[in-house]
């Protein structure tokens, strides 16, 4: 990962090695949701290079911090997805035997 910014910290390009659309597109989403971001986008310069460039331009805050916050937000979302998923699976497991019983008794 590199940090390609010139004097102005509010605009920068971040280059991530060994990442692809998976992370870049989710980060783009997360960045776009931040009101401090005036522009963001990503590109994969060459398909056989495992590298992705993420461009972040902000309304004034350092791009690096904004990107960090976007990652943090994305991480929090993931954690929430994981907990609610686990809960739903547990719920489903708890309800399943009862469902099967009722269908058995009906037959």
């Amino acid at each position: 990962m590199e940090h390609g910014s010139i004097k102005d910290p509010s605009r920068a390009t971040f280059s991530f090695v060994d990442e692809d659309h998976t992370l870049a597109n989710s980060l783009r989403y997360s960045l776009n949701q931040d009101a401090r971001v005036s522009y963001c986008g990503y590109s994969i310069p060459h398909p056989s290079d495992a590298r992705v460039n993420i461009r972040v331009q902000t309304t004034g805050d350092p791009a690096r911090e904004v990107l960090k916050d976007a990652c943090q937000n994305l991480k929090l979302m993931c954690q929430h997805v994981r907990t609610s998923f686990d809960e739903s699976v547990a719920d489903f497991r708890n309800n399943e035997p009862s469902k099967m019983e009722t269908s058995d008794s009906e037959n």
Partner: peptide, 24 residues
């Protein structure tokens, strides 16, 4: 399959954490 999904979500979390660590 349910374990696979939780693993997948964890992998995305790890990716985010790696970026945070890298930028800190």
């Amino acid at each position: 399959p349910e374990v696979l999904f939780t693993e997948a979500v964890k992998i995305l979390e790890d990716k985010c954490q790696r970026v945070i660590d890298e930028l800190s």
